[in-house]
């Protein structure tokens, strides 16, 4: 299932389950293997990967922002 990268603002001691509760996300909408990744924990900024439909639903929320998640590839050998 396609995933989108979002950043969310939560309390500094948030974990994945508290984030899902606070954001109204079901387990099958979240890439739990990826988890809740701290970007700037002091500011309460975290990253998550969620399904496209969850991302769309949250896109109007002031607590969440969608970001591009492009593929990254090795720079060599030149083809």
């Amino acid at each position: 299932m396609a995933r989108v990268l979002i950043t969310v603002r939560l309390s500094p001691e948030a974990d994945l389950h508290s984030a899902m509760r606070e954001l109204g996300l079901e387990e099958d909408e979240v890439d739990t293997g990826y988890g809740l990744v701290p970007i700037d924990p002091q500011q309460g900024l975290y990253a998550m990967r969620v399904t496209e439909s969850a991302g769309m639903r949250m896109s109007g929320s002031p607590a969440a922002d969608a970001h591009s998640d492009p593929p990254i590839e090795p720079f060599g050998p030149p083809r």
Binding site: M1, A2, R3, L5, Y34, G35, V37, P38, I39, A47, R49, S68, D69, P70, P71, I72, E73, P74
Partner: peptide, 25 residues
Amino acid sequence: PVLLSRRQGATTLDGLLSDAIAAYA
């Protein structure tokens, strides 16, 4: 090894930038 994280449907050796975010965390 972030570039071993295969995205769905990918045929080349690559990963996603979100994997690099997790690696940097």
